[in-house]
């Protein structure tokens, strides 16, 4: 159950090996791939997916799902952008993202948990609603030429790394601590494993579910702030495919879609592998139109390998080179 505690399970090794292998191949094929500049760009472009993926990890772990996270980020990004355009101080605009995100997370939570509609159905419905809302809020044009104040803050150097990196790291650390050292972690995994049994054991299942949706919404809001800071425009199609990408990355990372098992490290590696592949293929000259095909094939490949038992073999090979983590001690 607490697989995420042992840092390198079979799936994580497989993903790390995948990142390394694809990195080597691309570095060989394209002289530009392995430059600090390019890898920095990949890292910067991963921020939103890392944050949304973190929320999605919690949601899948608790047995839920939310396919509206991308467009929810879009709505929050519009709020941030409009505030910036209206001349609000960057800090206020930056906070608007998480606030709108939390509110939207609460909407999802109430529809799914209180309204008792299956999560996949409800959030597909909300996906449609939010997309129409984005259209309404943008009125058919882009938000562009946003002031650079917010960008300057998030890319400001703190101890030699951009501030955004620290925000992502803190988010992951906070979730890790909550999962490891508070009852929330046990409640979440127990609810995901079996709602009925968890309820019998006195786990506040509904509260845990609501918390997961609201946290995920908040993380979408933070991602929205990052998005506006990075790209400085908000277009009509914002976030349209982000939810599916996040689900792909999280599932790649070894989190069970049926709940009860999650891996934070796996999510990070899943996002890294997706973004590295997308970047590398682009540099090698594969048209970006093929990116979605590659994402889908990658998902099938990794899940297929695991089903056919290959990952155990690979895990054994990679762990032979690493000092075995104290798996027993963590329990």
């Amino acid at each position: 159950m607490r697989r995420f505690l042992s840092p390198f399970g079979g799936r994580e090794s497989l993903l790390a090996a995948g990142c390394l292998a694809s990195g080597l191949v691309f570095a060989y094929l394209s002289p530009y791939f392995a430059t600090a500049d390019n890898l920095f760009t990949v890292a910067r472009n991963s921020n939103e997916l890392l944050l949304i993926g973190l929320g999605m990890t919690l949601l899948l772990g608790v047995g839920g799902i939310d396919v509206s996270v991308g467009v929810a980020m879009g709505l929050a990004a519009i709020a941030v952008g409009r505030l910036l355009l209206a001349g609000a101080p960057p800090i206020v605009a930056a906070l608007a993202g998480p606030i709108v995100g939390l509110a939207l997370g609460f909407v999802t939570a109430s529809v799914v948990v209180l309204g008792r509609i299956p999560a996949i159905v409800a959030t597909l419905g909300l996906f449609g609603v939010y997309r129409a809302a984005i259209f309404l809020a943008l009125g058919g044009s882009w938000l562009s030429g946003l002031p650079i104040g917010l960008t300057n803050i998030l890319t400001a150097n703190v101890l030699g790394a951009p501030l955004s990196l620290f925000v992502v790291a803190i988010a992951y650390l906070a979730v890790f601590v909550a999962m490891r050292f508070t009852p929330f972690g046990a409640h979440l995994l127990a609810s995901g494993h079996s709602e009925a049994k968890a309820r019998l054991f006195g786990v506040p299942v509904r509260r845990t579910l609501i918390a997961a949706y609201v946290v995920s919404g908040g993380l979408c809001g933070v991602a929205a702030t990052f998005y506006v800071a990075t790209y400085r425009n908000v277009e009509m199609t914002i976030g349209g495919s982000l939810a599916l990408e996040a689900i792909a990355a999280v599932v790649l990372g070894g989190t069970a879609v049926t709940g009860g098992r999650l891996s934070l490290l796996g999510t990070i590696l899943g996002v890294a592998l997706l973004r590295l592949l997308q970047n590398g293929l682009l540099l090698v000259g594969v048209p970006s139109l093929w990116q979605t095909v590659v994402t889908g094939l990658l998902l099938l490949l990794v899940l297929g390998i695991e089903t056919l038992g290959g990952s155990q073999l690979l895990g054994r090979v990679t762990s032979a080179f690493a000092t075995r983590p104290a798996r027993g001690a963590a329990r």
Binding site: T292, V293, G296, L297, L299, L300, L303
Partner: peptide, 25 residues
């Protein structure tokens, strides 16, 4: 392969719809 239908068809959704767009540019 006993993949969860949601995930299996999500992956093939990527492949099929992406493939249709990519093959025809």
């Amino acid at each position: 392969l006993r993949l969860l239908p949601l995930i299996a068809t999500l992956a093939t959704f990527y492949v099929y719809s992406g493939g249709a767009v990519a093959l025809t540019a």
